[in-house]
Amino acid sequence: MLDPMILLALAGVGMLAGFIDAIAGGGGMIALPALLATGIPPVAALATNKMQSVFGTGMAAFTYWRRGFVQLKSLLPAIVLTYAGSLCGALVVKQADTSLLDIAVPVALIAIALYFLFAPNLSDADKAARLGFARFVPVLGFIIGFYDGIFGPGTGSFFTIGFVTLFGLGLTRAAGNTKVLNLTSNLAALTIFIPAGDVVWPAAIAMAAGQLLGGYLGAHTGIRFGARLIRPLVVVVSIILALKLLFWR
């Protein structure tokens, strides 16, 4: 049984993680270490992190959708395939060798940071798409969903860069669509974690309360300031997450 003061601290961590995640992704790098610091075993911490994060991600996704930055009808096939991809990744993770990802993912995150830092004309205005949205967003969803199920860190950054570079979305629309698919991939993982009894519910509920507030505030902040805030925050989050994966595992 966790001490009430620890649960209160976890609620605060959940609010901060939800705020950051709603704008640029990467909330897990705040929430997961906090869960591990309470003495929760790694698998249970991963499951609890997924559980608490769906509340903040769900609130952020709802806020972006309500403000018109997400068209759920056009995103539905991608939602289905993201769920399937994440579920497949979670099912095969025990048989897969993910050691290569220890280097490949940080390198990819640094490349994303450099792109967002130096690429010209990154704004909230939509650009010409390189690929058809209806045909290829579901493919993107399955691939990144599979990655999230099998490994996970940087999922939000990968979705965002895909929506911007391949499908021409402005940064705020990209953030909104990212939240919807990120929520989907987390729910798929919980399909396995919850029946297995891996979620520590007192911690998950405490952090979920903070996540709801953080996700709401973060989404509204991202919508208000748009690319001026999303662009530098994606750079910072991607670099910090890459360094964490390289040196603080």
Rank of each mutant, 00 (worst) to 15 (best):
F158V: 08
F158P: 07
F159P: 05
F159V: 02
T160W: 09
I161E: 03
V164Y: 04
F167R: 09
F167M: 09
G168T: 03
L169C: 02
L169I: 09
L169H: 07
G170C: 06
T172L: 10
A174Q: 00
A175I: 05
A175M: 07
T178Q: 02
T178D: 02
V180F: 01
L181I: 11
L181D: 04
L181E: 03
L181V: 12
L183C: 10
T184K: 12
S185C: 15
S185M: 12
N186Q: 10
A188D: 07
L190D: 00
I192Q: 14
I192W: 09
F193I: 08
I194R: 14
P195T: 14
G197C: 03
G197T: 02
D198A: 15
D198I: 08
V199D: 00
V200D: 10
P202G: 08
P202N: 05
A203P: 06
A203G: 04
A203R: 12
I205Q: 01
M207W: 03
A208N: 10
A209I: 15
G210W: 08
Q211M: 14
Q211E: 13
G214A: 14
G215Q: 01
Y216C: 12
L217F: 14
G218D: 06
A219M: 11
H220M: 14
T221Y: 03
G222Y: 07
